[in-house]
Amino acid sequence: MTNNALANSAQAAGESGQSGQIKVVGIAKRFGPFQALSDVNLEIASGEKLVICGPSGSGKSTLIRCMNGIEGHDAGTVVVNGIPLDKVKANRDQIRREVGMVFQSFNLFPHMSVLENCLLAPMSVKGMSRRDAKDVAMHFLSRVRIAEQALKYPSQLSGGQQQRVAIARAMCMKPKILLLDEPTSALDPEMVKEVLDTMVGLAQGGMTMVCVTHEMGFAREVADRVIFMDRGSIVEEAPPEEFFGNPKTPRAQDFLAQILR
């Protein structure tokens, strides 16, 4: 039931614009001598649920961070919702309004209550009144089943609760696209499920989701497509059953053997 309600709100968020597409063409990114991404091409359709996996250092986080310009790319183009992500500040601002992001380490603002965390961007970026923003915030906080903690500070919550707040905070901007960068990797094992359930609920709406994760259960249940990266390139892409059941490249086979062990 909660998941349905969550799906509806995600649907509403997804419908607010005509597109939730991401096009990545030939991007490259280098950190000093380390080539994090080389010639990555990827097209994500509106409403698609994409899971990105791969060993650490494979460039998956860098790739997802290039999709809202948290990380700049050195070469190639990224187009989000039809807007090129380039040096033009107005474009970047517009994209960030429409793209939400959830981080591995939550990155909630520790000096603000849960509610204030959710109010800041809608009020400051969208110019919503406190009252309207609060309605939206309480709506999403109850969707992630944490409304009763709204006045607490993040440090008073468990990791799983904090990550659910982070999801609600991102949803308060009603993004067309939600990027999730290893959202369950920093959680204690017993808290992984509550966050995954929340994510599954979101996925039932029309919102585009791109998720870096090794949670195969989530990938199987939700993903339309799985992308496997290694050494800065996309090595394999397939629907989840195919990827997990019958990986083609030796590198993907090695990787899956490792995480399945």
């Binding site: 310009g69 981080f103 990155n107």
Partner: peptide, 26 residues
């Protein structure tokens, strides 16, 4: 932490708001 600024950027906050509301209080 860098993640604070990143979260603020991802939410679309301007660098001014990010400095005043997120970075400076911490």
């Amino acid at each position: 932490p860098r993640g604070q600024t990143e979260a603020a950027m991802a939410l679309g906050l301007s660098s001014k708001v990010c400095f005043i509301k997120i970075v400076m209080p911490q």
